[in-house]
C-alpha cells in the first residue's frame, strides 16, 4: 500500500511539473506572437537609421518617412559573406556591413564609403558587447564621428591626438577593442578599394 502511494506521488509530481510548464510556455508563446511584428519592425527601423547615419544623411523624423525614403532611394544587395550592402540612388556612397572580433564577442558595423573618393562617410556599430564604459565607448558620438571624411589604411593614436587623414583616436583602457576597430576599418577599406578598381575597369 505504501509503495503504491509513493508511485502515485511520483506521478503527481511529473504531471504537476508538466502541466505548469505547459501553461507558462503557452502564455509566453502568445505574448511572443503578439509582439513579434513589433520586435522585427523595431530591428528594421534601427538598421535603416544606422545606414543613413553611416552615410551621413539626414534621418527622417517619423518611421513612415524613413520607410518611404528607403524604398525610393536605397537598394540592398547581398555583399561580403552575403551580409547586406546598401547603395543609394544618384550617389556614389556604398554602405558595407562587416564583422570583426571584439574583446567579448562579435562587433558588427556599418561602414560607409564614397566610392568616388575612397573616403569614409561614417561608421556605426549595430552589434557589440564590449566592456561598458571602456570598449563600449566605440558607440559614443565622438568616436564614430571622427571617421567621417577619412581615408584608410588606418593607424590609431592616443585619445585626442589624431591629426592626419589616416589616423583615429584610440580608446584609453580598451586596446583590444581599438585594435578590433582598426582591423574592421582596414578590412573594409581594402574591400572598397577592390570594388572601386573593378568598377573603373569595366
Amino acid at each position: 500500500m505504501a509503495k503504491k502511494n509513493k508511485t502515485a506521488a511520483r506521478i503527481k509530481m511529473v504531471v504537476f511539473m508538466f502541466s505548469i510548464t505547459f501553461v507558462f510556455v503557452v502564455l509566453l508563446s502568445f505574448v511572443h506572437l503578439y509582439t513579434k511584428s513589433r520586435v522585427t519592425r523595431n530591428e528594421k527601423l534601427f538598421l535603416k537609421r544606422s545606414v543613413l547615419y553611416t552615410a551621413d544623411m539626414q534621418i527622417p523624423n517619423s518611421d513612415e518617412d524613413l520607410d518611404i525614403f528607403f524604398s525610393e532611394n536605397v537598394t540592398e544587395t547581398a555583399g561580403i559573406n552575403s551580409i547586406p550592402e546598401y547603395r543609394f540612388k544618384n550617389s556614389s556612397i556604398v554602405i558595407y556591413t562587416i564583422d570583426g572580433a571584439g574583446l567579448w564577442g562579435v562587433i558588427r558595423a556599418h561602414v560607409g564609403f564614397d566610392s568616388k573618393t575612397g573616403k569614409m562617410t561614417g561608421i556605426d556599430f549595430i552589434k557589440q558587447s564590449e566592456t561598458p564604459g571602456l570598449g563600449a565607448r566605440i558607440a559614443e558620438d565622438w568616436f564614430r564621428e571622427q571617421f567621417r571624411g577619412k581615408k584608410g589604411p588606418f593607424t590609431y593614436v592616443p585619445e585626442g591626438e589624431n591629426d592626419t587623414e589616416s589616423q583615429f583616436d584610440a580608446i584609453t583602457g580598451a586596446t583590444v577593442t581599438t585594435k578590433a576597430i582598426k582591423d574592421i576599418v582596414n578590412k573594409v577599406t581594402a574591400i572598397n578599394n577592390a570594388e572601386w578598381k573593378r568598377v573603373n575597369n569595366e
Binding site: 507558462f24 509566453l28 505574448v31 509582439t35 513589433r38 520586435v39 530591428e43 534601427f46
Partner: peptide, 15 residues
C-alpha cells in the same frame, strides 16, 4: 517565465 516576459516587452516597446 516572468524574466522572458520582461525581455520580450523591453524588445517590443523599449528597443
Amino acid at each position: 517565465s516572468y524574466v522572458i516576459l520582461v525581455d520580450i516587452v523591453l524588445k517590443a516597446y523599449l528597443p
